Computed example of a mutant assay.
Amino acid sequence: MTLRIGISARLLHSPPPGLGLPLKRLQFLESTMAQWIMSHGVVAFMIPFLDEQVPRKRRHAPLGDLVESLDGLVLQGGIDICAETYGAKPWKESTDSDPIRDEYELDLLRGFIDADKPVLGICRGAQLLNVYFGGTLIQDIPTQWPGAIRHQDERDYDRLTHEVHFLPGSRLSDIYGYEPQRVTSIHHQCVDRLGQGLVLEARSPIDLVPEAIRHTGKPFVMGVQWHPEFHMGGSEDGLPGILDSGPLMLAFLKAAARRAGHMRRLTDSMAYVREKIR
């Protein structure tokens, strides 16, 4: 069977009037994320956010059914995680964050991690993984990380790059080797205190800002701070030496295939037993 990968939704709470739904919350999927996943011969589905505060709701969202029907989860990037979500005070009076999305994605994480299904977090998704396991975040690298290089530039956006080093013994070094690699950098927050069971996979070599994390007790739970989906062609996209995003996605999908194969063998075995009982 074709692998089915779920992608968390980005939420737009106040759409601009030109979209035609000015008073409705919108959910969306950044198109290159779907292309990155589906270019490897699998099917991707955006997992809808269901507002359980809506008065007309009949029952809770079927999280268990969603997890059971999908083979892995990818968390999109996006807006900052609320400081309150990990027990901190906001770094400034007014911040761009979304507690509704935090709660929605943390629920998804709980379901997939409890089911031992692979999870890959991208940028914000990597930070949310750290928060899920009890870690904290640096809320603003330029003001809270002395000596930091540029990790975000509104003028360059997805054209800003820097080197990362993969740590000895890391899963990323197994995938890519130990040579320094260049990646996109579109973030002003990063991992601070690591969550329980997590280890660093990569750092920015000049300022040592964390760039990737992994859970040691799970088959595949990893987060990367860069956006591999933005430059699937690597250097072909006009960014010399940019890291090839293919091997990372293949490693994630191989983990999903192993997990799916195990579950389908178990399902077939149970069906055989039920048939014998009849």
Rank of each mutant, 00 (worst) to 15 (best):
266 L>C: 10
121 G>Y: 01
274 R>Y: 05
241 G>Y: 08
238 G>Y: 02
214 R>C: 14
273 V>M: 14
197 G>I: 10
254 K>S: 15
193 R>Q: 13
218 K>S: 01
198 L>R: 02
8 S>N: 06
277 I>W: 12
146 P>C: 10
72 G>A: 12
61 A>R: 02
86 Y>H: 13
98 D>F: 03
277 I>N: 05
149 I>M: 12
275 E>P: 01
50 L>N: 08
39 S>I: 00
79 I>Y: 01
112 F>G: 09
164 V>Y: 06
61 A>H: 06
74 V>G: 14
234 G>K: 10
53 Q>N: 11
223 G>K: 00
212 A>S: 09
52 E>D: 15
29 L>F: 00
252 F>I: 05
142 P>V: 01
11 L>R: 10
41 G>Y: 11
27 Q>W: 06
105 E>F: 02
187 H>D: 10
70 L>W: 02
9 A>D: 11
140 D>S: 09
21 L>N: 04
11 L>G: 06
162 H>T: 07
101 R>F: 05
88 A>I: 04
199 V>D: 11
80 D>H: 04
127 Q>V: 07
106 L>H: 11
90 P>D: 11
193 R>P: 01
114 D>F: 09
122 I>V: 15
191 V>P: 02
204 S>G: 07
275 E>G: 04
121 G>R: 01
260 A>I: 00
19 L>W: 07
31 S>D: 13
244 D>F: 05
201 E>W: 08
20 G>R: 06
17 P>K: 13
161 T>V: 14
249 M>S: 03
123 C>A: 09
54 V>E: 14
255 A>Q: 04
87 G>D: 01
235 S>I: 06
176 Y>A: 04
58 R>V: 15
42 V>I: 06
40 H>D: 11
237 D>W: 03
110 R>I: 03
219 P>M: 08
243 L>I: 10
232 M>A: 07
170 S>N: 07
223 G>I: 00
266 L>S: 13
38 M>F: 03
70 L>V: 01
74 V>F: 07
67 V>K: 07
60 H>G: 13
160 L>Q: 05
233 G>V: 08
6 G>F: 08
188 H>N: 13
186 I>H: 09
1 M>V: 02
63 L>F: 12
127 Q>D: 12
112 F>Q: 09
232 M>R: 13
173 S>L: 08
167 L>A: 00
117 K>C: 11
271 A>S: 13
240 P>N: 09
170 S>Q: 08
